[in-house]
Design a protein around this nucleic acid. Structure first.
Lengths: 195, 195
DNA sequence: GCCTAAAACGAACGGTCGTGCTAAAAAGGG
DNA sequence: CCCTTTTTAGCACGACCGTTCGTTTTAGGC
């Protein structure tokens, strides 16, 4: 790997960390340069615009998400077990085990849901892919006979997402230690209802 | 009402609208002044700092939320009916019927969940109050015998919040027209499980 | 170890940010 | 209608924003 690529990865790691805490808008080139001990112009040269930086941060975060959540889930046996693995890894992601600032997508989603542009479009694509993946994983549970045949996979996907979003809200903002336990209970109830 | 108070209300109305779309951070004094056709300094005189503006916007939005969601719900008969009213008005709020930009609290929550300060504290207080209110409304459903006596009111509050958050995400970001229908299904499933 | 290409820097740009200060305009009770 | 108080405007400030450009430093193949 060339020098340029390696420093770019350092930059993106730090940028992803900052963005997960303060959002993609508040991620400023000046502070990012200071944090990585680079000059503003030296850093800027790696990206040709701020929007491009935001896009690369989002892609970088998505790669991490796939590595830490999606892939491990798909590595477990099809059916209910895989659904459980997906939930557990996703919960860990939201807890901030990977990014100290918590789920960067949740932050970006509320930041850009009303602001048209390339960032929003990338975000929409990623989130649609995620919903598709969740629905597909759930479908394998149906075909394995663990869930009702008439259960709606996309209903499951939206419900599961809600459990995670509520967990993030209750745990991170309200600092309620029971949030995780409630998320687990909600997940079990969701599985029960699908059986 | 004095002139100052009336223009202040105009400012706060506009500010709440902007903040619901772009967030409290992106709500800038310059653009707010342009939008209300006031000079920057003239507008600034009404608040003594940006943080104070953000706090007043949040309080203004909370008052609207109480008027449009909490009060109408409390005006319906105790028990399941009141729980349903709370859900329906809250859903309408999230749909953007009141604020074009959608739920301002959801946006602010993800924006400030990692940023200590007075804004975060106010937000935490408001959201705790909301959770308490939801739990209390659910409790009346228990005492009316509509829900299981051993159901956990705060579990219900977190679950209900998740349904709304997932609705916002799916409807506003993904622009999925089925989001609302799924939110209603999830709500009915939540009630069923509580019976 | 040289030479080219890549990478990082320093300085500057036009703008906008939040925030003061002072003066003008408007409001409104007497 | 005057006089005081309240409300608004004008102007300036230092800081930081994203971005450009020309120069200097570093990599890394030959």
């Amino acid at each position: 790997m060339s020098k340029g690529q390696s420093t770019k990865r350092v930059i993106l790691d730090e940028a992803t960390e900052i963005a997960s805490r303060t959002g993609l808008q508040a991620l400023t080139i000046g502070t990012l340069a200071a944090r990585t001990e680079l000059s503003k112009s030296g850093l800027f040269a790696h990206f040709r615009s701020k929007e491009s930086l935001q896009l690369e941060v989002l892609r970088h975060a998505r790669d991490r998400f796939v590595d830490l959540v999606i892939r491990p889930a798909l590595a477990t046996p099809r059916g209910e077990q895989r659904v459980r693995a997906l939930f557990e890894h996703w919960l860990s992601w939201c807890r901030g085990d990977a990014l100290e600032g918590g789920c960067i997508f949740t932050a970006a989603a509320t930041e850009f849901d009303d602001q048209p542009g390339a960032v929003r479009e990338l975000l929409v694509n990623d989130e649609r892919d995620l919903a598709d993946t969740v629905a597909q994983v759930f479908r394998t549970g149906i075909s394995e006979g663990r869930f009702r045949a008439d259960a709606d996979p996309y209903q499951f996907a939206q419900d599961l997402h809600g459990i995670l979003l509520a967990y993030v809200h209750t745990a991170r903002l309200l600092a309620d230690p029971k949030a995780e336990q409630r998320a687990r209970r909600a997940f079990e109830a969701l599985l029960d209802a699908a059986r």
